[in-house]
């Protein structure tokens, strides 16, 4: 019995030949219309017709490339490979992020990072990362599974306070910090990108719900939708 299920551990050589994995560009090309998870909310029309001033501004950064990068911090080839491709080090300190140009990386767990890049670059980045890294690593394109919202404005923090049990005070949440926490009975990766700017990475399946929630939570401050 036990010989059937006995797992075989890949040798170091097998682990290194990551290039043998079949990769697929998930984007169909510019001819096919892409729809973000909030397509049905029609934020473009809301931005045109809605309020122009208010305490909270919401903008969707849609159709970006999201890559989950996993590997051990003890694996020097993994960290060096990421550095070579991205041009900056993966943030190894818990709850931190790193950013350069259009690329940004969030610490998710001790062995997990979320890289967000322009949508068309994701496949190329994935290939280059796989090429540059070796050992026991994983890179998964999750672009279709989540989207990015940006909350900004003087009352953005008040909306966060309603939505998450996490302490978003300056003393606990400086610019650049990343926290994955409960967000309105759903979950979000919350990153502070500026004094009054907060980025939320949310799940596709919760996007509609969170859009409704954010409208409700920011109603008293005045919600401005930006396209």
């Amino acid at each position: 019995m036990s010989d059937i299920i006995a797992p075989t551990k890949p040798t170091a050589e097998q682990g290194a030949s990551a290039a043998s994995i079949a990769l697929m560009d998930q984007l169909a090309g510019p001819a096919v219309r892409a729809e973000s998870p909030l397509y049905n909310a029609d934020l473009a029309t809301k931005a045109r017709q809605g309020a122009k001033t208010g305490g909270v501004t919401l903008q969707e950064h849609k159709l970006l490339g999201h890559l989950v990068i996993r590997g051990s911090q003890d694996n020097a080839a993994f960290l060096a490979g990421a550095q070579a491709v991205l041009g900056f080090d993966l943030p190894t300190q818990p709850l931190t992020s790193a950013e350069s140009g259009a690329l940004s990386v969030r610490w998710i767990a001790p062995d997990e990072w979320l890289l967000i890049a322009p949508g068309r670059e994701a496949f190329d980045l994935e290939n280059r990362l796989r090429e540059a890294m070796s050992g026991h690593i994983a890179i998964v394109n999750v672009s279709g599974g989540q989207t990015v919202l940006e909350l900004s404005g003087p009352d953005a923090r008040a909306v966060l306070k309603k939505s998450t049990p996490y302490d978003v005070h300056d003393s606990n949440f400086p610019v650049g910090k990343v926290v994955t926490s409960v967000f309105a009975k759903s979950q979000a990766v919350i990153r502070r990108t500026g004094e009054q700017n907060w980025e939320l990475v949310i799940r596709r399946s919760f996007a509609d719900y969170l859009w409704l929630w954010l409208q409700d939570a920011s109603a008293e401050y005045g919600l401005v939708v930006k396209d």
């Binding site: 019995m1 926490s181 409960v182």
Partner: peptide, 26 residues
């Protein structure tokens, strides 16, 4: 892992720790 205190809502209890699987289940 995160190095800070978080609200209970973020966690799940998974029961008793240190349960050793029998070395020879068969």
């Amino acid at each position: 892992h995160c190095g800070e205190h978080r609200d209970e809502e973020e966690f799940h209890s998974k029961g008793q720790a240190h349960i050793a699987r029998p070395l020879d289940p068969d």
